[in-house]
Structures are given as structure tokens and as C-alpha cells.
Amino acid sequence: MDHSYLQFQADGARTAVYNALHKPNGDLLVAVADMDINRMLTGQQISDAFDKLEPGIVGLDGNISTLALSTAIMLAAGKRACVVFEPTSVPKCTSVLSALLSISRSGIDSSVSGLVQVITPNALELQEMAKAALKLALVESAPPASITSEIANTHHQLSVDTVRAALTLFPLFPIQIIKLGENGVAVVSPRSLDR
């Protein structure tokens, strides 16, 4: 295993921890998480890693700071790398939206649509992200109820709220892999018109 990017942090920094107990069906029962050390990742460290690795795919999650997220997203855009965002939890799922808002306000790139190509939320994270995207004015509006109801009726494992959230976020995130627990996953993506 390549350990060239392992780093020692300041005294008092706690090693990241995640312990979880699940029910027999796989649903989360209880978890303990401490990922605060990930927020110590700096923009310079990210930039150095991009220079050395020149990635084609960049995986990010909600555990790193808004500054680290926005730095990585902009570096990935400059290298035409695909960005995949894993929200990790409802409280952390909107961090990518804060990063996109920061990029938009910086004047570097006013259009943030498609800078993060893939997101992998569960249904609750997706709904929280859609509410925040509307509140931050990163998207203009939610789709009409008639459209969301029609899609939800066709795809029974999807609730109207999940469909509404996915369609609301579609202008920002063109590929959404939505985790549905025991119902598997739903993939939202552009469809080719020449099928």
C-alpha cells in the first residue's frame, strides 16, 4: 500500500474512528463517528496531490472542509477529472453545496452545474441536499408535483419526495446513485436520445 500521503497532524489530533452496529437486515442501529481530523486537510496538500497524481477520478466526502472540497473540485475541473461526492451523513451532506456556492461567489466559475458529476446519497441525504440547494439558490426550483408523482407511480421503490429531490438536484449533479436500503439503488442520469 502506498503510504506517501500519510501525514502526521498536530498534537491532540484524534485518529478518525467509525464503529457501527447493524440490524440483521443491514439497517444501521447505532454508530459512533469521529472524522474531525479530516478537516485539517489543507488546500496546499490537495494541490500537491493533484500535481503528483493527475487523477482522472476524484472521490470526495462530506468529512472534509468546505475549503478543501472547493479546492479539490476546482482542481478536478481544471484537469477534466470526474468528481464523485459521498455525503456520509445527513448533517454533512450539504457541505458540497457550500463548496459550490463558494466557487460560484469567487468569480472563478459562475456556473457550478456539473462540476461534481456524481453523487451517492441515500434518500434522506438527497432530500436534505435538495432543500439546501433551493435555499442557497444553486437551483431555480423544484419540479412540478405532477411530474414527480408520475415518476414515483412508475417506479414504486421511489417516494415522491425522493423523485422531487433527485430532479431538483439534476441540474447540479447529472449522475445520482441513490441508496435505497433494502430496495437497492436508483440511478438518475441523462438518457441518450438516439436509442
Rank of each mutant, 00 (worst) to 15 (best):
P87S: 01
S102K: 13
I73D: 06
E86T: 03
L101S: 15
G107Y: 12
G107N: 10
T94G: 05
C82I: 14
I108D: 13
S104E: 15
V84D: 02
C82N: 05
R80S: 11
I103R: 10
S102D: 11
K92A: 14
R105S: 14
T71M: 05
F85K: 02
G78F: 04
A77H: 14
L100N: 08
A77E: 13
L100R: 08
T71I: 03
S98L: 12
M74P: 00
L75A: 08
T88Q: 03
T88Y: 06
G107I: 07
C93K: 05
L97M: 08
S106A: 09
R105N: 10
V96P: 14
I73W: 01
V90P: 07
L100Y: 09
T94M: 04
S98R: 11
S106W: 14
S98E: 14
F85G: 02
P87K: 01
S95E: 11
I103M: 10
A77S: 13
A77R: 11
T71H: 05
S102N: 09
S106V: 11
F85N: 06
V83D: 02
R80V: 02
C93S: 15
S98G: 10
P87C: 01
P87Q: 02
L101Y: 13
S106Y: 12
A76G: 05
I73T: 07
S106M: 10
L101G: 10
A77C: 00
A72H: 04
V83I: 00
A81Q: 07
S104K: 15
I103D: 13
I73Y: 07
V90T: 13
L97S: 10
A72K: 03
T94L: 00
S89M: 02
L100C: 12
R105M: 11
I108C: 10
P91C: 05
T88H: 08
L75R: 14
V96C: 12
F85P: 03
A99L: 07
E86P: 01
L97H: 11
F85R: 01
V83P: 07
G107S: 05
S70E: 02
T71W: 06
L101K: 15
I73R: 05
L75K: 15
E86I: 08
V96D: 07
L101D: 14
V84N: 01
C82V: 12
P91K: 01
M74L: 14
A76D: 03
A99S: 09
V83T: 06
A76I: 02
V96G: 12
S95K: 15
S89F: 05
C82D: 00
V90K: 11
P87A: 03
A99T: 12
S98A: 12
T88R: 04
I73P: 05
V83S: 04
M74C: 07
V83E: 03
A72L: 04
V84E: 01
L101W: 12
S106E: 09
